[in-house]
Amino acid sequence: MSILVNKDTRLLVQGFTGSQATLHSEQSIEYGTNIVGGVTPGKGGQTHLGAPVFNSVHDAMEAVQPNASIIFVPAPFCKDSILEAADAGIKLIICITEGVPTLDMLIVKKRIDELGIQLIGPNCPGVITPGEAKLGIMPGSIHMAGSVGIISRSGTLTYEAVKQTTDLGLGQSTCVGIGGDPIPGTSFIDALKLFEADEQTKAIVMVGEIGGTAEEEAAEYIRDHVTKPVISYIAGQTAPAGKRMGHAGAIIAGGKGTAADKIKKLKECGVHIAENLLQIGAKAKEVLG
């Protein structure tokens, strides 16, 4: 088993004919992902990368029954695209795009919660279940099917964790990039819940960073509800206060959101801490015995 995506995933690509969507869809198809179609308003009826293009998610729903969608449209249009997919009945939506206005996400998050939809991102690398399906922009080649579930707020940092667990022969059940924005569709807790229930996952790696209190909240959840070992690395131990470190959500504000606070809380709640990013894989191996 795995979480969120597998070989039965029927993927729809929103913003399908754009250059980024094209590049990454090609890679996904090569990885074995079943892309059943794409949406670009005005280009319905065409064929792109061997898959049909539709004018709307609703048209695609009727014709090819996707059960997941991935969004590559520019940031100003993401609110509309996410809500369109939600309205059409898609239950798993992954938004890759960076730069979505925070207040757009405030509205979107409320709506998708009401509808019981799993939104991953925005500003994220996507989700991959090694050997089954790749819904995102991560390099497929570094992954290996295995026992570690990975959740992360950062793209390339996820790749580090993946590479290390692959090199040590552990592999991954599923890797979920929840994204670096202040209002993510899926929280650490949502993903932890899924990994806890997944048989294939034996240990969970949670890669956090400065800003907000999502890691602290996750720590309490782990203490109370997660029986599997959790390994965590927190980036930004050397970040200055008050500066946004690339990601919209990575900022220490009003003394809150420091790496030290997060690490302290995680330790208190029984989470294994990788003191630096080089030790993530080794720590997972040590914990799994």
Partner: peptide, 8 residues
């Protein structure tokens, strides 16, 4: 490349 890795 990448904000998280840059901090890391």
């Amino acid at each position: 490349n990448g904000a998280g890795l840059a901090m890391g």
